[in-house]
């Protein structure tokens, strides 16, 4: 099959767009089905919106970590690891000290499920995971950064910046913005975090980008140097102006192609 095969699957109440370039026509569908199944499985384990998920049961104290799939422990440990790496900016602990890994699950689940896409024998692929993007190297893809004012699916809306993925950077995550207002807390003060309107992080590991974007949105500018030290590049939208444009800062290597 030549050309791009594009399909949307739904899991975790979110749309996931998969794009396969020049995929094997017979292998494409099973690969995407496996990808989808992996996401559905992750939802069954990690969803806080279902009482019967392992995570819900674990947070209620009904089951010990040993009784849940080992991936649950893996993600909880990753949360703690990122808390340390981001200097406390990413903090998954709830008020009562119990870990709530929801902030990390999507990026982690997509990175994990994407291994099935290799089965499609495509020359390249891209996953648009409800705002977070993961792509293969090789072909350059232009990715827009959503206007922080846009609610709902930003596809097709005017964007504030355009970056290229597929070269040095293959993952892009964005936090904050208009989708869910004030859903990130500053772990230091315990107040709603309003450091930035929107934070985008580009790198090569979607879980890492996702965690750092959340960390910077929650912890503010003091978290930024840590991200830069790890070779990540950031776009920070600080605030809106009267004329409808935004004040923003980018790190020197931000892959903008505007």
């Amino acid at each position: 099959m030549t050309g791009t095969y594009r399909v949307t699957v739904h899991a975790m109440a979110m749309p996931f767009v998969v794009e396969l370039d020049d995929a094997d026509p017979e292998a494409a569908e099973p690969a995407i089905a496996a990808f989808h199944a992996d996401l559905v499985w992750a939802d069954e384990v990690f969803s806080l919106w279902r009482d019967d998920s392992y995570l819900s049961a674990h947070l209620r104290g009904d089951i010990a970590l040993d009784e849940a799939p080992r991936e649950l422990r893996e993600v909880l440990e990753a949360c703690e690891w990122y808390r340390e790496a981001t200097g406390g900016g990413f903090d998954a602990r709830r008020d009562d000290g119990v870990l709530d890994p929801t902030g990390l699950v999507k990026g982690w689940a997509v990175a994990r499920a994407s291994r099935h896409l290799r089965g499609a024998r495509a020359s390249g692929w891209m996953v648009g995971a409800s705002g977070d993007i993961l792509a293969t190297g090789g072909r350059l893809r232009r990715i827009g950064i959503a206007d922080p004012r846009v609610t709902g699916d930003p596809t097709g809306t005017p964007v504030v910046d355009v970056v290229e993925l597929g070269g040095a950077f293959t993952a892009l995550a964005t936090s904050g913005g208009a989708q869910v207002v004030d859903h990130i807390w500053d772990p230091t003060t315990g107040e709603v975090a309003r450091h930035y309107m929107q934070v985008s992080v580009a790198g090569t590991d979607l879980t890492e980008c996702d965690a750092w974007a959340t960390a910077i949105a929650g912890g503010g500018p003091r978290i930024v140097p840590g991200a830069l030290e790890r070779g990540l590049e950031v776009l920070l939208i600080a605030g809106g102006r009267y004329d409808g444009t935004y004040d923003a800062q980018t790190s020197p290597g931000w892959p903008s192609v505007r």
Binding site: M14, V17, E19, K106, M126, G128, S130, G131, D132, I133, R141, R142, I143, G144, I145, A146, D147, R149, V150, T151, G152, D153, P154, T155, G156, T157, P158, V159, V160, D161, V162, L172, A173, T174, S175, G176, G177, A178, Q179, V180, Q198, S200, V224, L236, I237, R241, G244, T245, Y246, D247, A248, Q249, T250, S251, P252, W254
Partner: peptide
């Protein structure tokens, strides 16, 4: 950090990165 001013514009892009929706 480099300062920039971003304006919303229409571009031909493969996907858009934003907060989860």
């Amino acid at each position: 950090l480099r300062d920039e001013v971003l304006a919303a514009q229409t571009w031909d892009v493969a996907a858009v990165s934003g907060a989860s929706f």
